[in-house]
Simulated assay, not measured.
Amino acid sequence: MTTATQPRTDPHDSPAARTPLSRDWWVLVGLLLVNVAVAGGGSIASSSGVDGWYAEAAKPAWVPPNWVFAPVWTVLYVMMAVAAWLIWRRHGARTARTALVLYGVQLALNAAWTPVFFGAEQLGAGLVVILLLEVALVATIVAFHRLTPWVAWLLGPYLAWALYATTLNAGVLALA
């Protein structure tokens, strides 16, 4: 019998044993493509704001240069997709349903923040969205940890960056 905190020990009981490895890789590719879509949507939604109102906005002293964001988000999106894939692969969609739904919720909130903050210039609403994102992300990390603790750590850098982004959002709002 498998507990929620331990991976399955019977190799015939794992999702990997029930599905060909090539299908497993396609799930990873699918998760990466969903994250690429979120990142691409964010890039499109933020392009006019970053070069427009945000360039002229008063910002806190701890804002990094704009070029930092793309490489950081690239690494984070890959780590997020790999974490979700590992949870799916080790536990299957049925056992990991709650964790994977929470992953989808936080990803949807992630996708919503950029158009709200940069596109619509709604700094207060952006702060609400990013705070909801953090709640969903913490819930996702807890759910992943219950299934496979070390996989949850893959989301740690994302949580740290989201918290940092929250300080930036709040700082721009306070200075507006």
Rank of each mutant, 00 (worst) to 15 (best):
W73A: 00
L76C: 00
R90G: 13
M79F: 13
S46H: 00
V63D: 01
G52S: 05
A55R: 09
L32I: 06
P65V: 13
K59V: 03
P64D: 02
V63N: 09
V63P: 05
W25G: 11
L33K: 03
P71M: 09
A84W: 03
Y54G: 04
I87P: 09
G42C: 11
A81K: 00
A37H: 12
L33W: 05
W25S: 10
V36R: 11
V38Q: 06
G49M: 10
G52W: 04
V38K: 03
W62Y: 12
L32D: 03
A45E: 06
L28I: 04
V68G: 12
A70L: 10
A61N: 03
D24L: 14
N66A: 14
W26V: 13
S48C: 10
A58C: 09
W88Q: 09
V68H: 11
G40Q: 11
A96S: 10
L76S: 04
V50H: 01
R90Q: 14
P64V: 11
A70P: 10
W67Q: 15
L28K: 05
P71D: 03
L76W: 13
G42W: 01
W67A: 14
P60A: 08
S43M: 12
V75E: 10
A96I: 12
A55M: 04
A84G: 08
G42T: 05
W53F: 03
T74P: 06
V34W: 06
A96G: 00
A83R: 00
L32F: 02
I44Q: 13
N35D: 09
A55P: 07
M79N: 02
V50T: 11
K59D: 03
F69A: 10
V63L: 03
A83G: 01
V63K: 05
D24N: 15
L86T: 04
K59T: 09
A61H: 11
A84T: 02
V78Y: 07
W88I: 01
G30A: 11
A37R: 04
